[in-house]
Amino acid sequence: MRPVPTLLFDGDCGFCTTAVRWIERNVSPRCESVAWQRADLRGIGVTRQRAQREALWVTPAGTVYGGADAVSKLLLSAGGGWSLLGALLMVEPVRRVAHGVYRLVADNRSRLPGTTDACFRSEAGARHT
């Protein structure tokens, strides 16, 4: 069992890495941030395709949340006002909208600032899953 939750993100994507570093500085979630490329995905029970498709929040017990649900859990872990926002993201219809926005950003990250060639490769691979 892990002592704290783990946030898995695409460490080859400049946009993803920049976003995670901003979150670490400004939101201060109670977790360890790890690029999925450096994680034991098999040990976590996550496929490479899923890790390429979305950010993942892995609880100490091993429960995995992806995409907007991962963002919600991350915000909940930070406490304070961030926690309220995280809780709001779990309530319908906000949850449905959050999932749509997350997918829109994730599917178009190659067009966002900080993009690297890895973003294009990850997008192409994720679409084939």
Rank of each mutant, 00 (worst) to 15 (best):
V46F: 15
Q52I: 12
V20N: 05
A51Y: 05
R127H: 09
C13N: 03
T129Q: 13
Q52K: 12
Y102V: 01
R2P: 09
R2F: 12
I23M: 12
V105E: 05
Y102P: 07
L8H: 05
A39V: 09
T129Y: 12
M90F: 06
A106Q: 04
Q52C: 09
P93H: 10
M90S: 08
R50F: 05
A68F: 01
T17S: 15
T63E: 13
R21I: 06
E54C: 10
G11S: 08
V91N: 10
A106E: 04
L84G: 14
V91Q: 05
S72W: 01
R95S: 10
A61L: 08
G100S: 14
C119S: 09
T115N: 03
P60W: 01
E54F: 09
G100D: 13
S110T: 14
F15W: 04
Y102E: 01
G66Q: 04
S28D: 12
V58M: 12
G45T: 03
Q37N: 10
V4A: 15
D117G: 14
G79Q: 05
S77M: 06
G11R: 00
R53E: 07
M1Q: 13
W36V: 06
V58W: 03
M90T: 11
L85E: 03
V97H: 07
I44L: 10
A19G: 09
V101S: 11
D40F: 09
G66A: 02
F9P: 05
T63K: 12
D40S: 11
A126T: 06
M1P: 14
Q52M: 08
A68W: 00
C13D: 12
R121P: 00
K73I: 11
M1N: 10
H128V: 14
T59I: 02
P113Q: 12
A55R: 11
R109L: 11
K73R: 13
V71D: 00
R111L: 15
G66V: 01
F120G: 08
Q52E: 15
A70C: 07
T17F: 07
E24C: 07
V101M: 15
V71F: 02
K73D: 12
R111Y: 10
R42V: 06
T47C: 05
E24V: 12
A39K: 02
T59V: 06
P5R: 01
T63Q: 14
L75M: 11
L112N: 08
G100A: 14
G62F: 09
G43S: 14
S28N: 10
V58P: 14
E24A: 13
